[in-house]
Amino acid sequence: MIKKLLTLPLLILVASFSFGQNATLKGVVKFKGEAPKPRLISMKADRQCDAMHGGKPVTAEDVVVNQNGTLKWVFVYVKEGVKGKYSPPAEPVVLDQQGCLYHPHVFGIMVGQKLEVRNSDPLLHNVHSTPKKNKPFNIGQPVKGMKSYYTFTVPEVMVPFKCDVHPWMSAYAGVLDHPFFSVTDDKGEFEIKNLPPGTYTIEAWHEKLGTQTQTITVKAGETKSIEFTFERKK
């Protein structure tokens, strides 16, 4: 009897810590109004880049409105309310330079997590990161297959990346000291998993359209959906 009495709360405790307790935050970022015409990037001045795209212009990734009227490349993260410490995963985040473009355009990374910047083009790229709180980073990668590693030491939203040789190339990294972030995809959707129950301020960040915040409360085991809507600034 005593044994039973003891095991029950223990079971609940174990279960709640492993999966039951944490919530999932899902959602979509919508774009209201007429989608702007995508800006074209001409790579004519660098013949090698131009050739990789068959001489066709490439669309810029600054404002990408998906087919279903949602917005791509929005960084959604928990701005306030996270308690406790989280250690970064061992595997690095990869920022690839391919076809004279950054892949991905927007990404999240944890403080202390390795960022691998890779050059998949047979030409010089230079990775010029200009954070405000972290240490700036400016390094040349003249040859295909080169990799550089970098770690951030302080949370910072967002850290811009630029290639000075191909000024149209840009990427943004959201640096956080917890793993609760996500980037919207081709359907405008995002998902933040394993969020402990509590009240949080969620921010959605877009490089051109600014930021929006919502305060939400999640309960243990809940899957919550929220929605952001951005508008074209005039």
Binding site: I41, S42, M43, A45, D46, V165, H166, P167, W168
Partner: peptide, 8 residues
């Protein structure tokens, strides 16, 4: 205007 690297 042609932004840097995009013009001829």
């Amino acid at each position: 205007v042609f932004p840097a690297g995009e013009g001829v």
